[in-house]
């Protein structure tokens, strides 16, 4: 601020410049956060319009809800601890299935990428699995493994393993052979090779695969819980729907939306922070 005043003082004779110096910081704040502000504005406008439309249109509690009621329902779910309980129940199979998908998927993918013949042999089979809507196997899995953690975890695993396989394979294939030769020529050990060339090359692909896999794993959670469950966030949505408790149902839906956005945007942010050279790819 002192700097700006000093500058304004030197050119005090010209009113135009003083004005420019005065408004410059404020303008740049709006300019810098323009997209964020516009986004916030549109969300607020949307919520206000949603709330306001029922002043004109008759409000039917069994058919639609409005933001104020949803917020109340949300607070209610939080204060009774129901929401956290359901989320905790759902997160256990999510965790098991997802970790299994990472371990198995990355292992298969690296072998497929590293050994050309294995790649040839497995690629069509994996593509077939990836293209077929494996969600369709959910009823079988539920009937076979029951409604507990294992059934859900298997569905989540099946849905989220393929992005890891394909991305890890692509990552290994993209390793620059020249860099490998350079490290070898310079007397690098096998360890150097892995730490300096292979891992940095493959990791971005795996993280990109994670972003895709998260969405599919969330679908897995919901499918498993819609089919057969006695607790969990997907079950909560279906039950509140059956009970026509639309405020709580919306509250759960919005909670899932927030979780999905936080997870995918979190991975995207991590991608940008950890592998800045890959931005825009």
């Amino acid at each position: 601020m002192a700097q700006i005043e000093a500058r304004a003082g030197t050119i005090a004779g010209d009113a135009r410049f003083v004005g420019a110096a005065d408004t410059a910081p404020r303008q740049s704040f709006v300019e810098k956060n323009r997209n964020l502000l516009l986004g916030l504005l549109s969300v607020v406008l949307f919520l206000a319009a949603w709330e306001a439309i029922f002043l004109v249109v008759p409000f039917n509690k069994l058919f639609i809800s409005k933001p104020s009621l949803i917020f109340e329902g949300w607070l209610d779910l939080i204060s009774t601890g129901e929401l956290f309980h359901d989320l905790a129940v759902s997160s256990v199979p999510f965790f098991y299935g997802f970790v299994a998908a990472i371990v198995v998927g990355v292992a298969i993918g690296i072998i497929m990428g590293w050994r050309q013949r294995v790649g040839y042999a497995l690629d069509p089979l994996m593509t077939m699995f990836y293209a077929s809507p494996l969600v369709a196997l959910a009823p079988l899995v539920v009937v076979f493994f029951g409604v507990g953690v294992s059934g859900k975890a298997i569905i989540i695993f099946l849905l989220s393993v393929f992005p890891f396989i394909f991305n890890a394979a692509a990552g290994v294939r993209a390793v620059d052979r020249l860099l490998i030769n350079v490290v070898r020529s310079m007397g690098g050990t096998e360890k150097d090779l892995y730490l300096k060339v292979i891992v940095p090359s493959v990791l971005p692909y795996i993280v990109a695969g994670t972003r895709i896999a998260i969405g599919r794993a969330l679908i897995g959670v919901l499918v498993a819980e819609f089919f057969a469950a006695s607790e969990g966030i997907g079950y909560a949505i279906a039950r509140f729907g059956d009970l026509f408790a639309l405020d709580k149902m919306f509250a759960c839906i919005i909670t899932i939306m927030i979780i999905a956005v936080v997870l995918t945007e979190g991975v995207r942010w991590a991608e940008r922070a950890a592998f800045p050279w890959r931005v825009g790819q």
Binding site: S42, V43, I219, L222, F240, A260, V261
Partner: peptide, 22 residues
């Protein structure tokens, strides 16, 4: 684009299955 962005990000990240009961 700035105005639609929050909605697109949210709906794109969310598995659309959550809307099915609704």
């Amino acid at each position: 684009n700035a105005m639609f962005d929050p909605f697109i990000t949210a709906f794109n990240a969310t598995p659309r299955l959550v809307f099915l009961p609704l």
